[in-house]
Every structure is written in C-alpha cells, then in structure tokens.
Design a protein around this nucleic acid. Sequence first.
DNA 1: TATTGTTATACTCTATAACTATA
DNA 2: TATAGTTATAGAGTATAACAATA
Lengths: 149, 149
Amino acid sequence: MPDAQESAALGPLEGLVGYHLRRASSLFGADFARAVGGMGMRQVLFGILSVVSANPGINQGEAGRALGIKRANMVSLITELVDAGLIDRQTDADDRRAFALSITAKGVKILADCLTRISEHEARLLAEFDATDRKALIGLLRRIEALEL
Amino acid sequence: MPDAQESAALGPLEGLVGYHLRRASSLFGADFARAVGGMGMRQVLFGILSVVSANPGINQGEAGRALGIKRANMVSLITELVDAGLIDRQTDADDRRAFALSITAKGVKILADCLTRISEHEARLLAEFDATDRKALIGLLRRIEALEL
DNA sequence: TATTGTTATACTCTATAACTATA
DNA sequence: TATAGTTATAGAGTATAACAATA
C-alpha cells in the first residue's frame, strides 16, 4: 500500500482562518476547472453570467459590484462573454452612459450546462458533508462575506 | 442616513460553496494586506516563512508541497525571502541537489511581528464568531483541504 | 530512471490612474 | 460634480515544458 505521506508542519499558519480559506478556495477552484474542462469557462466569467442571468438589464458596474470586480476589469470580461455569444450588451435607453446586459439563449444553455457540471462536482467533493455541515459551512461563509474591512 | 444599498441577486451562484469560499478568501486576503501594510509581506511568503520556521532544514520541494506551491514557482519566492534576509538557503549536505532552508533571526522577528498583526486583524474580523463558530469554521475548512480531487 | 532545483514563458486575476461621455 | 465605461499598465499567483545536476 502507498503510505499516506505526512506533509510538513505548517507552523503558525495552522491557526489562521485566512490560510485555510485560501487553500479550500483554491481546491474548489481546481475542481471548478476540472468540472467545466475544455469549455473555456472560468470562475469569474461564470459568476458574471450568473448575475446577469438573475438581473436582466443590469449594467457592468452593478454586476461588478455584486461580485467584487472592479469596473476597469469588467470591460474585457464582458467583451469575452459578448464575443462568445453568451451575453448581449446594448446601450441603456434610460442612461446612455451605461450598457444594459442580458443573457442570450446560448448563454442560458451554457450557464445551465456549467451549473449542472459544477453542482455534480461539488456534490462529489462534499459527499461526506451532511446537510447540517453544508448549512453550517455556507452560513459561516456568508457571515464572512458580509463583514466590512 | 446612507441607505444600505441592496446588491444585485447572484443567481445560481448563491448556492455554490466554491463561490462563497472565493469571496471569503478574498476578503481575508485583503485584510491580510491591510494587517501587514507596508511591510512587503504577502500571503504566500508568510506561508513559506511559517513552514520553514516549523521545519528547519526543509527543502524547497517539501515546503512547496505542504503549501500547494509548484517547484518552479518556489524558486523566485525563496530568492525573495533570502534576499530579504528572512531565510537561509544552504546546500543540503546529505543531498547535494537540494537546499536546506532555515529561518534567520530576522525572519523569526518578522514572522512573529506579522503573526501578531494578522492575528489581531483576524480577531477583529471574527469578533462576532464565538468559540463554537470558529471551531466549526476551521474544522470544515480542514476537511475540505483534506479532500482529493 | 527519478528527483531537486532552474529557466523561460504564458495566462489569469487584480489594482491604479487618467481619460470620455453622459447625467 | 458624479457616474458608466474605457484604456493602459503593472503586480502577483499559478501553470507547463524543457533542462542540468545529483540520487
């Protein structure tokens, strides 16, 4: 049997929540990539697609704010999604500075497809986490997200 | 009174653990930067310093493996720490391919200083999380880290 | 033949500052 | 004067492939 190699001690790092969040997030990120492998989808893009889907007509700034993405960085991300035919970008009639974003039919399909894959992967990763564990996890993370620096 | 602006709905994203981990991790990352502001310390470097501190004589590969950092990326990171005088890099007498890393006196001081600041910041962030919450949080994250893709 | 460290390289995410056009 | 979007740019983290030295 291949012995389960002991990893080196982490030192003071072991007690820091920030470190564990980083590692756990990174693991889920790798799993995301595996789940949607070869589809050209990334976490950020999926996030934007999801927000646009839930808020038809939203503009770049609002979408970015909901996701913690800076305006300047939204530009090329939105362009990627538009070029891929997943979202539609039209000048907002009520405010000609802004764009009204909406998800396309293709976007809906891709979003659903990715969501299925990612959900399956998360289900597999969290197979040994019962309903209580999952609720606790999401609950704790939401409380962290709501914090102000 | 400044009204608490409602953020846009997240859509399907809301139910994904990976998304919440990403946001929570990012928030702690920003807090880390604030905690050690101006010291030139970063999460990755702090991690390496911590592991080297806990494992005197460890080599780059082992340290990287404990932290999920690729060998190729360890090179410049270790060089940064050596150049900053925080760790010492000497050819390992038992294996002349490898370097034996150890923390310097200055490294010990910086590590302790940073740890104090970061701990204070984490304590402030988690002020409304009681002992049970914290144990649950760290416990859940450790279980995630232990998962295999 | 496997492993340690190295170099080169590329991609992604994020951050800031300065600009335009509209409000 | 403030806001939406844009451009340019830079820093940081991470990924792969190919290589030399040593085991």
